[in-house]
Write a protein that binds this DNA or RNA. Structure first.
Lengths: 340, 340
DNA sequence: GCGGGCCCGGCAACCGTTTTCCCGCCTTTC
DNA sequence: GAAAGGCGGGAAAACGGTTGCCGGGCCCGC
């Protein structure tokens, strides 16, 4: 790829077209009153020189950069990516570009990124991360709007867009009840993890509303397949009878599926299985493929971006906005109509 | 989070400190000759007003934005993320910010992103993507340097940083040979996929150098666990004898592991298993955990970023730069010293 | 006492673009 | 034929910051 000498400026364009800079600007932006012939002449000159307007110089005048910052509090991971993509998509439609900043769970790094973004005069900031637990605001006061996506801020005046994890868990339980299961066990992540607690509590609550109780206490462990396998051993050893397991993640559910198969308990016939996250590579590769709760992270990112755009344009949406999860049903809870 | 009224300008700072703008600028940037007292007075004023220099205005003068664009040709995925993170890390150390652009496999979108980035006067562009296959340059000529990471450009004058996939496959085979295996089968992705072809060819070549040939023809299929499981069926049905399977991806390897276990073939005692990608959630959750080829994508991103920085500073590194892969050994090829 | 030099800081140009204001010329109308 | 109005386009200020140049005041030395 040859390298072009340098960026053409509007002065170059004006000179080539034989007009003043002001006129060139008007011609390119459809402003002022100019002869059509002049406009096309200027545009042709711009095309010829490969002119791209200097966005920085422009925003100096307009006060807007059409740029937003996106900070992931922890490292960029499985949860932040869909959020990121949704946001990038929604923002791109509004001609906005995204600065990506990786916080790496380091408050120093995070502050540095905030400073940098402000220096670059972003029009707004989106903060996202791996955990849904509320966190302290990234800064006490900022000259630009901030939206928290997936994670939420402890300041109730901040705008946070989060998945309705409780609702997701309820939908999972309702699905299990609908297919006739009554002895539901729950295997999930570490108890100190916000999501694990919320989902477990909602599971217990929804069962209680149906006059049922959980098959054994919720099993808190790790977000891993290994824990899922291990938990099955605990359930069996403990003598718990169960006809369904609702898991706090797809990885756990997959571990449960493998362990159940290993001991000859058939899924879904004997034990129905529901995961959480709807992480395609896990849910679909599992044997059988997993019914799972989808938090619609991409939609979350999109919504967050839209709210940020609205806030930038003067109509903020303060508060915590919970978005519904939905259930994706696969073979781990349904016998296929035409068994292979 | 309260919203600050507006950004302070250097004029505000100068006024508060009782000096001229020029002096304020010098004080903040350590330029010119000023009394120490004046410097601290200006800095204090800046701190008090929460002043952050307007990077756009500054670059108007310096000609540099300390900003680079990162374009993922396809959607942001498992391969582009580590590359992205490595690059972000290396660039962040150089005080540069990253514009993230998602190409979504759409040439129109891609051209739009290139235009936008040029308009924003990025100092350089990094292009990455999901496939290692060489692709056409993103633009015939650009005023800023471009580095391709993971993917490569068909133009030999472009700078591309790619994993040495052939070397990676060779290391895998050498490891299998070192642990005494001689009947190696190869199960990989679709034949039209560049990586699948390269890895398969290298596998065959390295075995040939040892006077061996592949156990059966390479099995081309999909990059999925299901295909791995299916391939085991084909191997067994075909009567191929094998004491090792080298797979084109960890997902395939995991499918192979599951299928082998299902038919009672022990891994690694009877069949050693090696994957590719070293995708932690797959490699570690597999039973047994997978020995796998790591392409060091984060390092790739870092290298690409460093080369881009060098190119921006005037010393480009044209050509295709292959970076070594390394093998991560786990239980799928080694019997643990202390069997559990 | 006066001149020279040095230290400190102000002035102004410039980066690239937008936008307002204004002017000149052409057309139209009486 | 002259005045008015409108159309087309130029000049310049402004956005926020950097930097080269210059000048004022003070100190020191002769």
């Amino acid at each position: 790829m040859r390298k072009l000498a340098r960026h053409a400026t509007i002065t170059d364009v004006a000179a080539l077209a034989g007009v003043s800079v002001g006129t060139a600007s008007k011609a390119l932006n459809g402003r002022g009153s100019l002869r059509e012939e002049t406009r096309t002449r200027v545009k042709e000159a711009a095309r010829q020189l490969g002119f791209e307007v200097n966005a920085g110089a422009r925003s100096l005048h307009s006060g807007r950069t059409y740029t937003v910052g996106m900070i992931t509090t922890d490292t960029i991971g499985r949860f932040s990516i869909p959020v990121l993509m949704g946001a990038e998509d929604a923002l791109g439609a509004g001609q906005m570009s995204v600065f990506l900043c990786d916080g790496r769970d380091d408050p120093i790094r995070e502050r540095y990124h905030v400073k940098t973004l402000l220096s670059r005069r972003v029009d707004g900031i989106i903060v996202t991360g791996r955990r849904t637990e509320a966190r302290a605001p990234i800064a006490p006061a900022l000259p630009v709007p901030v939206v928290y996506a997936f994670i939420s801020s402890t300041d109730p005046d901040d705008c946070s867009v989060v998945p309705d994890e409780e609702g997701g868990a309820r939908k999972a339980v309702e699905h299990l009840l609908a297919i006739g299961r009554t002895r539901v066990a729950h295997v999930t992540g570490p108890e100190h993890h916000h999501s694990a607690r919320v989902r477990a509590a909602a599971t217990v609550a929804r069962l209680a509303e149906a006059g049922l109780s959980l098959a054994g206490p919720p099993l808190f462990g790790a977000w891993s397949e290994a824990w899922g396998r291990q938990a099955v051993g605990m359930l069996l050893a403990g003598g718990t009878t169960f006809d369904a397991v609702f898991c706090g993640s797809d990885q756990i559910a997959r571990g449960v599926a493998d362990a159940l198969r290993a001991v000859g308990r058939r899924v879904p016939e004997e034990v129905a299985l529901v995961g959480y996250d709807n992480w395609d590579v896990m849910a679909q590769a599992s044997q059988p493929p997993l019914t799972s709760v989808d938090m619609n992270l991409e939609g979350l990112g999109r919504t967050a971006a839209e709210m940020l755009l609205a806030a930038i344009n003067g109509t903020p949406s303060p508060g915590r906005h919970a978005r519904p999860c939905h259930l994706v049903v696969r073979e781990s809870t349904t016998v296929p109509l035409l068994p292979a």
